[in-house]
Write a protein that binds this DNA or RNA. Structure first.
Length: 753
DNA sequence: AAAAAAG
């Protein structure tokens, strides 16, 4: 095979092996493999088949032996296909595609495409030959898929599917089942569409479309099962992790709703409790310049500012108008914000350098509804379903401006409603510009949401996707660590909103598979982080790809002037919002610093985690995170790790292990510092002290959520004490320092929490 | 040092 093929093969193998091996390798062995991706499909039919056995020569041989009658029945379906094929008249198109396939499958091609009918009968021997295909399959995914993607466009129907699936995959546990589909799909589809999807549909309004798909798939399946899906399987193995997802989903309700929402209900409180720390930020980050800020009183003044003063009113008065209009339909004309715009324009005194912001308090938004803010009925309903009954301060502050088309800088702690603050109005705007009805295949994405980590991108999608679906728009995730074909095929089918990380997005752009030229709204979540060295340039390159004059929204819990360079190049007269922070005094987080001997570190950590609640441990390096997790496990503590040395499947799974409670301890690098939502983490241990106060704030923000109490313990050697003092001061956090050694009462007491 | 594309 060409070298290109080989690599491809190796990839696929990698995808499969690690996962399978890692997961159930020993216990389930081949069955796992089979069960996961190829397994489902072939698995049931083949039963004994280990992995892709079907395609494997071994299985083939078995089948060939027994099959004549047995397996083929399954294939018997194919005969049916032959019957169907007339219908496949459509395939010609495929045939077109396949040529490429053919390239891969010399023997297969000749027989299958033209002859297949006969194939089913006579050729199967060839099929046996296929048994050899195993390699074939492995090859294809890589070579063909690209072509597939190309083909899919033709799959007019699929577009929807692809769109859905991405989402499905992520969200839906059941998705895990699909792998099976690919194998079985012919039959499988018939079954599933009805059984599984209905459920899906139930969950997802927008999926109402799928039913059609299910119809289509049968045919579709016939063709693809062999070519494409195997590939799918390949990918999914990784999705094999999804099962974990499934875990998440249960949690699903949790994620968006639980983490954020609980907080939502609580929010006012949270904002108080959580913000204390964040509330401080503004001051912290900007302190120098913010020298002004300290005057929150000044903020009050700001609130008095003409422009701002108007807002609250707007929301009330204008909104009532809007809502009336909105009921009939959405149009940008409603936005009073335009009036607002004028006001803002006059209020250009907002100095970007200082990131002076309009502070919104919980009290200001009492009684305001999402509808008042200008969001449409469907979106409001979906938000309600998500648990966001009424807007939080950050949402009330930014939604009108986003709808008005302004560039926005928003400072709000993750979990404080930030995602909805940009996600909901973004969807609303896209809908205004181009209704769902006008959805066309292969349309270019019109919105982009960039996140610093894959986990965060996934989390954002979990919130934004349902909102988008509620109005018929589609989202897809574009991030690395997973096979790209599925992402590419989704793009080709056409999506409206892309949520992802910089690397893969740039990769796909370079490959010519992603075109951001129609992106009119771009969101940078954790924007300050995205401006860190190493992130800034990719982000700039990506932003330059988006439509000129497009709207830019920058959000972060620690938004500071670090984003100045982006603001200068890409934003025009941005509105800057933040939520008035409560004092630390109202924080529910207890900060402690243990001054220890370096050699005692692991022993002390071992004693600290010997407790009931969930503990998140931060380490500076991947290696130490891994080592510490292993060490704890050896000591009998259920622990796992999360860092960039793990493949995406493991990352996802390990995080879920903490979410689901299968482990109580997660040792992570700063990949988990931002945006990760796990309920009930009541202890955060910083095995290595952070270098930056913002890191401290983000790490500690993983606990003390929803008004619950939390403790942050930072371990430092005594020579670091001074630095730690300065960092805490910068973060405006008061912590208690104490010397500690293994077995100390203080340590036992902390564990007793 | 970590993260983000693979590898």
């Amino acid at each position: 095979m060409p070298t290109s093929n080989n690599p491809a093969v190796s990839r696929s193998n990698k995808n499969f092996d690690p996962k399978y091996a890692a997961k159930g390798g020993p216990s389930r062995g081949g069955s796992n493999n089979g069960s996961k991706s190829p397994g489902h499909r072939g698995y049931q039919a083949d039963a004994g088949a280990p992995k892709k056995a079907r395609w494997n020569a071994g299985e083939r041989a078995d089948r060939a032996a027994g099959r004549p009658a047995n397996d083929r029945p399954a294939y018997g379906d194919r005969p049916a296909r032959s019957n169907d094929r007339p219908a496949y008249g459509d395939r010609p198109a495929r045939g077109n595609d396949r040529p490429s396939y053919n390239n891969d499958r010399p023997s297969y091609n000749g027989a299958s495409r033209t002859d297949r009918p006969t194939h089913s009968n006579t050729d199967r021997p060839t099929y046996n030959a296929r048994s050899e295909r195993p390699s074939y399959n492995s090859d294809r995914p890589r070579t063909d898929r690209p072509s597939y993607n190309n083909d899919r466009p033709s799959y007019g129907d699929r577009p929807a599917r692809s769109n859905d699936r991405p989402a499905y995959n992520k969200d839906r546990p059941s998705y895990g089942d699909r792998p099976a589909r690919s194998n079985d799909r012919p039959a499988y589809n018939s079954d599933r569409p009805r059984t599984d999807r209905p459920a899906y549909n139930n969950d997802r309004p927008s999926y109402g479309d799928r039913p059609a798909r299910s119809n289509d798939r049968p045919a579709y399946n016939n063709d693809r099962p062999r070519t494409d899906r195997p590939a799918y399987n390949n990918d999914r193995p990784s999705y094999g992790d999804r099962p974990a997802r499934s875990n998440d989903r249960p949690s699903y309700g949790d994620r968006p709703a639980r983490t954020e929402r609980p907080s939502y209900g609580d929010r006012p409180e949270r904002s108080h409790s959580d913000r204390p720390s964040y509330g401080d930020r503004p001051a912290r980050t900007e302190r120098p310049s913010y020298g002004d800020r300290p005057d929150r009183a000044a903020r009050t003044e700001r609130s008095d500012r003409p422009s701002y003063g108007d807002r609250p009113d707007r929301s009330h008065s204008d909104r009532s108008n809007r809502s009336a209009h909105d009921d009939g339909g959405h149009s940008s004309n409603f936005y009073p914000s335009r009036d607002t715009k004028a006001h803002f324009a006059s209020g250009d005194d907002v100095v970007l350098e200082r990131l002076e912001a309009i502070a919104t308090t919980a009290a200001e938004v009492v009684g305001v509804t999402f509808g008042d803010l200008g969001l449409g009925e469907n979106i409001v309903r979906e938000l309600g379903a998500l648990g966001a009954a009424s807007p939080f301060p950050i949402q009330a502050a930014t939604i009108p401006d986003v709808l008005a088309g302004r560039d926005v800088l928003g400072r709000g702690k993750t979990g404080s409603g930030k995602t909805i603050a940009f996600g909901a109005p973004l969807v609303e705007k896209l809908m205004e510009n181009n209704g769902a009805k006008d959805r066309k295949m292969a349309r270019k994405p019109r919105a982009l949401i960039l996140a610093p980590t894959r986990e965060l991108a996934l989390q954002i999608d979990r919130t934004v996707q349902p909102i988008a679906r509620s109005v018929g728009l589609f989202t897809t995730q574009i991030y690395g660590g997973v096979p790209q074909y599925r992402q590419v095929s989704a793009l080709q089918r056409g999506v409206d909103i892309i949520i992802g990380t910089a690397g893969r997005i740039e990769d796909l752009i370079e490959q010519g598979r992603l075109d951001l030229s129609e992106v009119v709204v771009t969101v940078l979540d954790e924007a300050d982080y995205m401006c860190d060295l190493g992130f800034l340039e990719p982000v700039q390159r990506i932003l330059r790809q988006t439509k000129k004059g497009g709207q830019k929204l920058l959000f972060s819990a620690t938004l500071d002037k670090g984003v100045a360079s982006l603001v200068k190049e890409f934003l025009t007269n941005p509105a800057v919002h933040e939520v008035a922070g409560e004092d630390q005094a109202s924080s529910t987080i207890d900060h402690k610093v243990l001054v220890i001997e370096h050699r005692d570190k692991s022993a002390i950590i071992g004693q600290l985690v010997d407790r009931q609640g969930k503990t998140l441990i931060f380490s500076r390096t991947r290696a130490y995170a891994e080592q510490l997790a292993e060490q704890l496990e050896d000591a009998g503590v259920k622990a796992t790790s999360l860092h960039g040395d793990l493949n995406q499947a493991r990352r996802t799974r390990n995080l879920q292990m903490l979410t689901s409670g299968r482990v109580n301890v997660l040792v992570a690098t700063d990949v988990a510092a931002r945006g990760i939502h796990v309920d009930d983490i009541d202890l955060v241990i910083q095995a290595d002290a952070p270098d930056e106060y913002k890191t401290y704030l983000h790490r500690s923000g993983r606990t003390g959520r929803a008004g619950k109490s939390g403790t942050v313990v930072t371990l430092i050697p005594k020579q670091r004490r001074r630095r730690m003092d300065e960092l805490l001061e910068r973060a405006d956090i008061e912590a208690s320092f104490m010397n500690a050694a293994p077995g100390d009462a203080a340590v036992r007491e902390l564990a007793g929490l």
